[in-house]
Design a protein around this nucleic acid. Sequence first.
DNA 1: TTGTCTGCAAAGGGTTTGCAGAACT
DNA 2: AGTTCTGCAAACCCTTTGCAGACAA
Lengths: 135, 135
Amino acid sequence: MLRSRGLRLTAQRQLILDAVLELGHATPEQVHAAVREVAAGVNITTIYRTLELLERLGLVTHTHLSHGSPTYHSVGEDAHVHLVCRNCGAVDEVDPELFRPVTDTLAAERGFQVDIGHVALFGVCGRTECGERRG
Amino acid sequence: MLRSRGLRLTAQRQLILDAVLELGHATPEQVHAAVREVAAGVNITTIYRTLELLERLGLVTHTHLSHGSPTYHSVGEDAHVHLVCRNCGAVDEVDPELFRPVTDTLAAERGFQVDIGHVALFGVCGRTECGERRG
DNA sequence: TTGTCTGCAAAGGGTTTGCAGAACT
DNA sequence: AGTTCTGCAAACCCTTTGCAGACAA
């Protein structure tokens, strides 16, 4: 896959892709930590460069969950919408089909094509510690 | 409002709130630029501190649109969902009512209360320059 | 052997913090 | 007058860039 584009298959690239596959949602720093457990010498710079490369190749995507760093996940997995609890930070996933009516409406009425894999909804999750009463 | 909480009403705070009201969606830097047109000496630090304060007071909120800086907007305005074109960067707004079925479902099935004012949907807008054919 | 890839170090953008002086109440 | 707020400068985090050596092909 890399080779077919004249790119090189290195140990680092394999480890980084494996880490993204394994971690599910991971920031560059989390990927770095995971890779380092196997290969201590890998530099954070390489993480950034490789994530960008893998994204260009369509193997991973990133989403912005809350503040700070983006999180990467593999494209092979089922697309999903993220639910981010702004209280405890937990990230849950939802089937994008739930949004079908909404995205269809936006496409029809505005010509806006929603990239459902990038969607993150903020709010408060159902845990007792986080739950709030709302009007 | 500020005074009632023992806080002080300063020229800077008024200018910053005015700028947020006027700009609609604005990054801290954009707020800074707007404020500077009226009061050149105001420091970016004050922008950050004041936006945080106004948010604690419930007067403004912020959303993360795409990469980079968050954008702030006033709470008094109608809540709205953001549509961000990842091609041209345009930000459009949608009536949150459109999402009612979805948010109701998430609340009922998962106990997740979506904060609809924070929602940003990424995708491709309807402009000819940005429009894409999709499967 | 050749060209890409990596590590290192340093620069860059955006945001936060410490402190002394300025300003609201 | 007493405290809060501001500006300045420096620190901070995350990310990007330049370069020389390392390595896949």
